[in-house]
């Protein structure tokens, strides 16, 4: 187990380094001058040259890379070119919003997707199964931002139950009002994914010999489903949930924008438009770390739900 962790962490470091280098190069290959964008279109060439110097953009690429790596190793991701705030501080300030949204929508997705998937599998090729499959297909193919606008129209304008600006905090009611629509928006898509995977995993398990044996010896049906079958079907479901967490964080970009929530998504779009190099680099590192971490947790969970899986 310890050896496994150490090996995975070493891999994570290599991944991080590769991503860092790639991002460093990529953001600079894209045309666009941060100094020009900060100063605006009326600034003179001289003012822009002066600002480029202050931002260290006039250094050679290799020198910039060296400064960046040395800083990164010391845990210093630099300061945002636009706001002058440390990158880490900016990211940490909005990270809780994104994590909160992602987790709540994932919980919604699991809470809706797993039971529906199980139910659809048990009633394979019956009415509910067809409905569930069609609905989940719709959920997958419907763009998140369209669903978001429809949700707002329905539950903020026609029925004024929730705010359009979903960024309230303070009281539990305010929190609940702010998180509900965005979480449903993201949760619906993950529910669709999880439902489909649960259904197919369950179908496979239900046709196993041990399920037939259990039924033959009179084990109650709910016990067969929830203890014997679902437990064995969990591995693919957990894999999908883990993978999907990464996708969710990415998807949250649009949801955050439409529902006016702060978060990594808005931050990354802003940084991209302004060519805020340090910010982009810092954000990519955070994204990479989150994905690596989620994968690690997913792997560890395998061992928990299925003792046959040994982490070596």
């Amino acid at each position: 187990m310890t050896a496994f962790l150490i090996r995975r962490l070493a891999f994570a470091c290599v991944t991080l380094f590769a991503v860092l280098t790639l991002v460093f190069v990529l953001v600079r290959i894209v045309p666009g001058d941060p100094a020009q964008l900060i100063l605006g279109d009326q600034a003179s060439r001289e003012a822009i040259v002066a600002l480029r110097h202050r931002l260290g953009l006039d250094l050679s690429i290799t020198e910039q890379y060296r400064v960046f790596l040395v800083g990164a190793l010391k845990g210093d991701w630099g300061v945002s070119m636009v706001t002058g705030q440390p990158v880490i501080a900016e990211v940490l300030r909005v990270l809780p919003w994104t994590i909160e949204l992602t987790l709540v929508s994932l919980v919604l997705g699991v809470a809706a997707g797993v039971p529906m998937g199980v139910y659809a599998a048990i009633h394979r090729n019956r009415f509910f199964d067809y409905v569930a499959r069609i609905v989940s297909l719709l959920g997958l193919s419907f763009p998140a931002f369209v669903a978001a606008i429809l949700l707002l129209l329905m539950f903020a304008i026609v029925l004024p139950w929730f705010p359009v600006i979903s960024a309230r905090s303070g009281s539990p009611t305010a929190w609940f009002q702010s998180i509900t629509l965005p979480a449903i928006n993201l949760g619906l898509i993950s529910a669709a994914y999880i439902m489909r995977v649960t259904r197919s995993a369950m179908l496979e398990v239900l046709s196993e010999d041990y399920v037939r044996t259990a039924r033959a010896k009179g084990v109650p049906w709910p016990v067969i489903i929830w203890r014997h079958s679902l437990r064995n079907a969990l591995i693919p479901i957990i894999t999908v949930v883990g993978l999907y967490l990464g996708i969710l964080i990415g998807n949250s970009v649009l949801t955050e924008i439409v529902f006016n929530r702060p978060g990594l998504g808005k931050l990354i779009i802003g940084a991209l438009n302004q060519r805020d190099y340090p910010m982009l680099q810092g954000m990519m590192v955070i994204y990479t770390m989150v994905v690596v971490l989620v994968n690690l947790i997913t792997d560890l969970t395998y061992g928990l739900v299925d003792p046959r899986v040994k982490l070596q």
Partner: peptide, 19 residues
């Protein structure tokens, strides 16, 4: 002074009276 980049959300928040 609220920052709301999506045109449609800004319109909706205006309609709902939040703006």
């Amino acid at each position: 002074y609220r920052y709301i980049p999506a045109d449609s959300s800004r319109d909706l928040a205006f309609q709902s009276g939040e703006l």
